[in-house]
Design a protein around this nucleic acid. Structure first.
Length: 561
RNA sequence: UGGCCUAUGGUGUAAUUGGCAACACAGCUGGUUUUGGUCCAGUCGUUCUAGGUUCGAGUCCUAGUAGGCCAACCA
């Protein structure tokens, strides 16, 4: 969809209104502000697409700013992973920033607040302060240290900075209103003492600013015009504005915080704590496990950046609670892969067919279309011979008219090859079919143009020549949770809803053209789904991940009966 | 008991700002097809409730109801 024809979401309306009121378009500026303490997931993708999409729409710079004010949890590893994921999604930031770049400026401003009597050092324990904080329905009480003199506050704050105190002994608090109905305005903490090395500033600082004091001022320093965050920060806006008022120069752009509802995807969880539990509990094999809703997991699963961007644009941005069905994400990856993924044949649950009237030892290479959606993709050759594999569930000894696959006495088209007829089958002692004996019509070769080749047969099957088949490991992934919203049940833990069959590892037989498939190559196994080559692949052993099945109306028909 | 936010098909978002409720997904019916894929056509709504303003209300007003968020030296 072109940007011009797309309807506007409420944040775009806010920007349009600002523009209409005279805000200069060339001063529009956005930012994506992750905390480097974990991996990006599908929820972040929405925010990334929102902010960077706005940048593209208005031709405005977008900063990537790491909100790194807590050295206890933050690491360089996450910075690198986040940058890689944002790039992979297809976005370029204007400048790479760190809240830690502003520590000195923030400190200088804090000194100004102290001197104006708007901040003070509190020397109580966190328990004492919590007790004085009040509740949502009762006002708080003043700290006994609230009326310290400017001189005393300055001396204490400077000593905090010099590292003369233990962690937890003092904090710097903004002096606002302990009676406010907004708990965040009840003298919020601006600085705490932390004797921890920071991933960028090392041991330069032993006091670290809190989120509220940092975020708005960072937006201001960067001259971000519109600062978009999720709804749980709505109450923070009053504080954001209060802090801004303390330093604001009206010749500069004043950042505007607005909040949107985070997007929830069905059949998954997204909180860092829960994701970590899945990783540490061994439920999945790491942060990039293809079942994880992380960007790196989706990448390994075979999702394309374009499909994720289209998904994000389709679900839009609003303020109400939501639960987006994962089938919408699956639709977008199918839509994209349908256009770009080469078609190949692979049999995942095989049963052997012997074509009794096909000469023993003979083989021929048949032409096959690489992608019916894209003629420019060309053709390839696939080998055919007397013994082939087909999918076990593509054969039944007897079946009704609705089953238009192979049955005894029935005919079926082998994709790109011949029409065959099932004559008989062999079984083992347990009654399992071990081999199907067929005959073929030599004149029915696909594309030969003969009358026989033009015959209409209802079913078409994919197949693989046994002699030429490539063996591969195929990982069949399904959704990780059976419940659409596993972590919103009051009396049940989300771990109770884990799908025990979210991964099946099987052996598949593939056509030989896949021999040189490279890691991250994406293909469609015809009639089965989209698959991609996993990084675990080696030259000896191919490993494929199933990204998503094809739409399967046959499965629906079967379910109904 | 306080404050803030939200309410439109099964799902997600729109509605030229007070003027024929639209788009996508999912579901269901058919058609096309050498993938039961793709593609095409059709189908699926008391805009949370009750009042009010108005020629006209999803949109404005009032009162309810329901859901979410708010008491970390986290972000």
């Amino acid at each position: 969809m072109s940007e011009a024809s797309k309807s506007l979401n409420f944040l775009e309306h806010i920007i349009e209104d600002d523009l209409k009121k005279g805000f200069p378009k060339d001063q529009l500026r956005f930012r994506f502000p992750p905390e480097p303490n974990g991996y990006l997931h599908i929820g972040h993708a929405s925010s990334i697409c929102l902010n960077f999409g706005l940048g593209l729409r208005y031709d405005s710079p977008v900063n990537l700013r790491f909100d790194d004010t807590n050295p206890v949890k933050e690491e360089q590893e996450f910075v690198d992973a986040i940058k890689r994921d944002v790039r992979w999604l297809g976005y370029e930031w204007d400048t790479e920033r760190y809240a830690s770049d502003y520590f000195q400026q923030l400190y200088d401003w804090a000194v100004i607040l102290i001197k104006k009597g708007k901040a003070y050092v509190d020397s109580q324990s966190s328990e004492e302060m919590a007790a004085q904080k009040g509740t949502p329905t009762e006002p708080g009480m003043h700290s006994p240290y609230r009326e310290r003199s400017v001189e005393e506050n300055m001396a204490l704050f400077e000593a905090m900075k010099r590292g003369e105190f233990e962690e937890g002994t003092h904090v710097l608090r903004a002096k606002i209103d302990m009676g406010s109905s907004n708990m965040l305005m009840r003298d919020p903490i601006m600085y705490r003492i932390l004797h921890k090395a920071h991933h960028r500033t090392s041991t330069d600082w032993c006091i670290y600013p809190m989120y509220d004091w940092t975020h708005g001022e960072s937006d201001y320093i960067e001259q971000v015009s519109h600062s978009f965050c999720t709804l749980e920060f709505a109450m923070h806006r009053e504080l954001y504005d209060w802090f801004l008022d303390q330093v604001y120069d009206d010749k500069k752009v004043r950042p505007k915080q607005r909040e949107f509802a985070r997007r929830n995807l069905s059949h998954t969880v997204v909180s860092k704590r829960k994701l970590l539990k899945l990783v540490e509990g061994g439920v999945v094999n790491g942060w990039d496990d293809p079942r994880m809703p992380t960007i790196s997991g989706l990448r390994r699963r075979g999702y394309t950046p374009e499909s994720i961007r289209n998904f994000a644009n389709t679900i839009g941005i609003a303020k109400r609670d939501n639960l987006i069905d994962v089938s919408l994400l699956e639709f977008h990856v199918r839509e994209h892969l349908n256009k770009i993924a080469p078609r190949v044949m692979g049999v995942l649950d095989s049963v052997k067919i012997v074509i009794s009237n096909y000469p023993e030892g003979e083989e021929e290479w048949l032409e096959a279309e690489n992608n019916p959606e894209d003629p420019a993709a060309g053709t390839r050759l696939v080998p055919f011979s007397r013994e082939i594999y087909i999918e076990r569930n593509d054969f039944r000894e007897e079946a009704n008219r609705k089953f238009f696959r192979l049955k005894l006495g029935g005919e079926v088209r082998l994709k790109n090859a011949y029409i065959i007829k099932a004559e008989s089958c062999s079984k083992d002692a347990d009654g399992n079919i071990t081999e199907i004996q067929c005959t073929y019509d030599p004149k029915s070769k696909s594309g030969s143009g003969t009358e026989e080749s033009l015959r209409k047969v209802k079913g078409t099957l994919h197949w693989v020549s046994i002699k030429h088949a490539l063996e591969a490991e195929v990982r069949i992934y399904d959704r990780l949770f059976l419940d659409e919203s596993p972590d919103t049940h009051k009396d049940k833990d989300f771990m109770e809803f884990i799908n025990p069959d979210s991964l099946k590892v099987i052996k598949g037989y593939l056509e030989p053209s896949l021999k040189n498939a490279k890691i991250e190559d994406r293909v469609q196994f015809q009639r089965l789904g989209y698959f991609c080559v996993d990084p675990d692949s080696t030259s000896e052993k191919l490993v494929f991940n199933r990204t998503v099945t094809l739409r399967d109306t046959w499965a629906k028909i079967q379910q109904k009966s």
